[in-house]
Structures are given as structure tokens and as C-alpha cells.
Amino acid sequence: MVDTLRQYIDSNQKMFQKLMTKYVLTLDIPEQLRKSMLYSLEAGGKRLRPVLLLASFEAYSTEINKTYSSALALEMIHTYSLIHDDLPAMDDDDFRRGLPTNHKVFGEATAILAGDALLTYSFEIIANDPLLTDKEKVYCLNQLSRASGPSGMVGGQILDMEAENQTVTIEKLEKIHALKTGELLKFAVTAGAYLGNATEEQISHLRDYAYYLGLIFQVQDDILDVIGDQEKLGKAVGSDESNDKSTYPKLLGLDGAIEMKSYYTEKALTLLEKANAHTSKLLELTNYVSERDH
């Protein structure tokens, strides 16, 4: 099962990478901007969000080509957020995925513009998809803009910044990560199900499932920052502690964080069953997110 999942992730990673590169290469834009966009898009990564969207769709339908525009848009938005997160005004990181961060290679101004370009181009990709109905386009554009905007990822980012040098409650920490990380994962899972013609009840269960999946992802991130392998992670470990960030291990201890992750995982798997998606790749991906080492 592990090998099959690994093959599923790897094959879809390669497919999404080729498509993203193809889309950017077709643009008539300044070459330096293109290079900066492609630098971060081609730097690797798990491609977890587009893979989740595809897996959610496949739990209910088979015509996967109608998922591609939303999956690519989602990954471009995630990539833009990483470029901006790494800037000196934010996390001030020198490396991402084992490579110098975008602003270290292209300068801060170009990095900012590359992030802006990826964000805005993502919506154009969905709007121009001939395989989607007008109703499907409106749904995906509405949900993705909400997930990535002030009520979602951007709101979570500023809450995360405000929480630095403070000790926050578990409830506040969950809110931060439900917005910063969870909203894009929520879009992946619900948009995939919607395009696959899942019922409203199934989508509702999957929305709740994705909430816990986002928290699982973040707990494991926090754990890896304590005990992870720097070479596998492609970035320095211990940065959360040095930046005085509130994390699950800081609030609960390492064992408490692992226990909390198990609680979230149990909740997520129960909701997958309610959504009648417990025999899909989503089940394996949940365990993968919980146990990943990078």
C-alpha cells in the first residue's frame, strides 16, 4: 500500500510539475519575471494540495482532466505564499526546499512580483478552463479566493506573526493553523469533491475532515522542526524555537504533540468514513501527512 501511494504521489507530482511549467512558459511576460516564477515552481515540494484535490475528485468520479486548472491554481497560490513567507519582512529565510530562497536569487522586488504574478495568474487559469461549466468556475474561484485571502491563509499568517514572542492557548494555535494551513487544504478536498459531483452532505463532512487534516499537517511540521532531519526537510530545524514561535511541542511537549496528532487523525478518519471516502486515496494520504518525514 505504501509503495502504491508513493507511486500515486510521484506520478501526479511529475504531471503537475510539467503542467505548471507549460502554463508559465506560454505567457508573454518579462523573462526575469518568468525565471523567478519558474524557480520557485520547479524547486520541488510534495504537491500535496493538488494531489489531495485529485484524490478527493477520484473518490466520486473519474474524468480527472477537469480538476487540473483548480489543482494548478491551488499550487501556484501555495508557492506564492512561500515566496512571500521567506521575505525578510516575514520569516527572513535563506533556504527553501534545499535551495536559496527566491529573494536571495532574484532580489526582494522581483520575488514579491513573482508571488503576485502566481497569485493572480492562478485565477485566470480557472476562469479560462473550457472543461468547467460557468457554475463550476464561479464555485472554484469563490472558494479559492476565500481560502487564500483575509478570511483564510492571509488572515492566518498575520495571526501567526502576532503570536510570535507570546504564549498562546491551544485554541488560538488551532485557529492560526486552521486559517494559515488548513484553508487551502480545505479547498483542495472540497473543490475536488464538488467537481466530482459529491453530495452536499459528503462535501460538508469532507470540509470538517480537511480542518483536522490541516491540524495534522501542522502538528507534524512542528514535530519535525524539533526532531526532523535537516537534509530531508531542506531547511534548518529548530527555527520555530529560535524565532520564539508558538508550536504544539512548545505548548504540550513533544509527547503531548504526538498525542494531539493522534487525536486529530482519529477525528479525520471518522469524517472520511461519513463522507463515504474511507476507501479512497484520501485515507492513505491522511496517514502519509501524519507520518511524513519532510
Rank of each mutant, 00 (worst) to 15 (best):
M1I: 07
T4N: 08
Q7A: 15
I9S: 03
D10M: 03
S11M: 08
Q13E: 11
K14G: 00
Q17N: 15
Q17R: 10
L19E: 13
L19V: 10
T21N: 13
E31D: 12
L33V: 12
L38S: 00
Y39W: 12
S40T: 15
A43K: 06
G44R: 07
G44E: 05
R47N: 07
S56F: 10
F57K: 03
F57T: 02
A59Y: 08
E63W: 06
I64W: 13
N65F: 04
A73Q: 02
E75I: 05
H78G: 00
T79W: 03
Y80G: 04
D86P: 00
P88W: 14
P88L: 14
M90L: 11
D91M: 07
D91C: 08
D94I: 07
N102Y: 06
V105Y: 07
F106W: 09
E108T: 15
A111G: 03
I112D: 04
G115S: 11
D116N: 15
Y121H: 07
S122E: 11
E124I: 09
L131P: 01
L132E: 02
D134H: 12
E136D: 13
K137V: 11
K137S: 04
C140R: 00
C140N: 12
L141K: 07
N142A: 03
Q143T: 12
Q143L: 13
Q143W: 08
L144N: 06
L144R: 05
R146T: 14
A147T: 05
A147R: 05
G149F: 08
P150W: 11
S151A: 15
G152A: 07
G156A: 07
G156Y: 07
Q157L: 10
L159Y: 05
M161Q: 14
A163W: 06
N165T: 13
N165D: 14
T167D: 12
T169R: 09
T169A: 10
I170E: 13
E171R: 08
K172T: 14
E174K: 10
E174V: 00
I176Q: 06
L179A: 13
E183Y: 09
L185A: 00
L185P: 01
F187H: 07
F187N: 04
V189L: 05
T190H: 01
A191D: 01
Y194E: 10
L195N: 01
T199W: 12
T199E: 14
Q202A: 15
S204Q: 12
D208W: 02
Y209L: 09
L213P: 00
G214D: 12
Q220A: 03
D221S: 08
D222H: 11
L224M: 09
D229V: 13
E231F: 06
K232E: 11
A236T: 06
A236I: 04
S239F: 01
E241C: 01
N243Y: 04
D244P: 00
D244H: 15
S246V: 02
S246W: 07
T247N: 11
L251N: 08
L252N: 08
G253M: 05
G253W: 11
L254F: 11
G256R: 00
M260G: 00
Y263P: 00
T265V: 09
T265W: 03
E266R: 12
K267E: 06
A268Q: 02
T270D: 09
L272N: 06
L272F: 02
L272H: 07
A277T: 02
S280D: 04
L282N: 02
L285R: 00
S290P: 01
E291K: 15
E291D: 08
E291R: 13
D293S: 15
